[in-house]
């Protein structure tokens, strides 16, 4: 532990993942589960193998792997919705970014790519 380097003080005092409204979190998890991206999320944030197994175990029992990911990354590690936004950006999960845009600072909205028009828009 003495060799562990520390990050410089971080000025992110935005909303915590674990305090997201239940409905917002639920919708987000439904979307992420439909894309089956939980393993990419776990890899990108460097979860430990036993934590990955924990998520897989929940999935095998019919529970939402994305929700379990949030329990770990948000519930234990106390990360913010802004960090989640950054994670989605890195993995190019644009619709997920859109789903949480109201919970991050407006000046980050520029990072959400404009969605392509659908046939019905034209």
């Amino acid at each position: 532990n003495a060799n562990r380097t520390r990050s410089r003080s971080h000025q992110d005092d935005t909303l915590l993942i674990r305090l997201l409204p239940v409905s917002a979190r639920h919708q987000l998890c439904v979307h992420l589960d439909s894309l089956d991206v939980w393993q990419q999320l776990a890899t990108a944030v460097k979860l430990y193998p036993e934590q990955v197994e924990q998520i897989r175990h929940q999935k095998d029992r019919g529970r939402s792997p994305s929700n379990e990911f949030m329990n770990i990354w948000g519930g234990q590690y106390n990360h913010t919705v802004q960090s989640l936004f950054a994670l989605f950006k890195k993995l190019k999960l644009h619709h997920a970014m859109r789903m949480i845009k109201d919970y991050v600072s407006e000046d980050l909205h520029k990072y959400i790519p404009r969605s392509l028009p659908t046939i019905s828009d034209l």
Partner: peptide, 18 residues
């Protein structure tokens, strides 16, 4: 926070090709 691992801060990387 440590600088690596799941506890590390995750921030927007500027200069992405997006």
């Amino acid at each position: 926070r440590p600088t690596d691992g799941p506890a590390a801060h995750f921030s927007l990387e500027l200069g992405d090709d997006m």
